[in-house]
């Protein structure tokens, strides 16, 4: 089942296939780490799974009151609560995954300094665990859609693509920030603030259509724009996403590659600075 092989441990930045195959070899550990995160979260919190429901629903209520009712924010002709909830579901996932993921390496330093396993599993588990909350939130979204009698069209077939884009965005950000936080501790104070700013740079409370045409390309560099607009289009029939989505997807792939390269450079000696 398992072949005895020789490996060379040395200081090198050369690309090493074993790093990739190791991730595969340790895939069960990814499952266990994720499972632990989920289990511990639901065991510790008194509200348990209800928390996954309360978070997006409360935001939806607040946004509807302030942006929808008081500020009369346009919503592309859709009911405002549904319009914003549809964006809050992927957004809540992203912010949980990014906040948890960027703190993950530092949080697991005790384990990392005692045992070897591919370090990248730590941020990966941190972005995988909130997928459970995400699934619950999707169920809420479907219930609200039913309440508004909104039935998705064929575009719903694209939903997996946008979910993948969302997870890839979380992965790129979490992996990069996890390594950065391990190197420079003060990054962890910046992350919550940056995530908050990111929320306003993403069409969660407002439609992307209010952004002037000439800024669209710049706007599309934010991958969450593509994700959020995509969710709306696929589920509740918002504006069909254009070339901007493609731009978002390209940005994500580049960011993910960049984050992995940086992580790989840091991971070999990360325990020395933890």
């Amino acid at each position: 089942m398992h072949v005895i092989s020789t490996r060379r441990l040395e200081s090198t930045r050369r690309f090493d296939w074993r790093r990739v195959t190791d991730v595969w070899r340790y895939r069960e550990l990814l499952y266990f780490l994720t499972w632990r995160d989920v289990k511990v979260r639901y065991k510790q919190a008194a509200l348990g799974a209800a928390w996954a429901v309360i978070q997006p629903v409360m935001s939806m209520v607040v946004f509807t009151v302030f942006f929808g009712r008081l500020a009369h924010m346009p919503s592309d002709g859709l009911p405002y609560p549904l319009f914003t909830l549809c964006a809050l579901v992927p957004w809540t996932y992203l912010s949980t995954a990014v906040t948890g993921g960027s703190a993950s390496l530092v949080g697991q330093q005790h384990v990392l300094s005692k045992v070897y396993f591919p370090r990248i599993l730590v941020p990966l588990a941190a972005i995988a665990a909130p997928l459970v909350d995400f699934a619950i939130a999707i169920a809420i979204l479907v219930a609200v859609m039913a309440g508004y009698q909104v039935v998705p069209g064929l575009a719903v077939l694209w939903l997996p693509f946008f979910v993948a884009l969302m997870v890839a965005t979380a992965a790129a950000t979490a992996i990069g920030l996890a390594a950065l936080t391990a190197r420079y501790r003060d990054v962890r104070y910046v992350v919550p603030y940056a995530v908050q700013l990111w929320l306003f740079a993403t069409p969660v409370a407002y439609p992307a259509s209010i952004v002037p045409e000439r800024w669209r390309v710049l706007y599309g560099l934010n991958p969450m724009t593509g994700v959020v607009e995509g969710f709306r289009w696929a589920l509740i029939g918002g504006q069909p996403p254009g070339a901007v989505t493609l731009l978002s997807a390209v940005t994500v792939v580049l960011a993910l590659v960049g984050a992995i390269v940086y992580f790989r450079r840091v991971e070999g000696t990360v325990v020395d600075v933890l």
């Binding site: 398992h2 005895i4 092989s5 020789t6 490996r7 060379r8 441990l9 040395e10 200081s11 990392l112 300094s113 005692k114 045992v115 070897y116 070999g268 000696t269 325990v271 020395d272």
Partner: peptide, 21 residues
């Protein structure tokens, strides 16, 4: 046990390493 990389030199290790630190 591959928890950290050496700065110089190398080690060739044959087989899986279990660390009970």
């Amino acid at each position: 046990s591959e928890i950290t990389k050496p700065t110089t030199g190398f080690a060739d290790v044959t087989g899986r390493v279990g660390s009970l630190l």
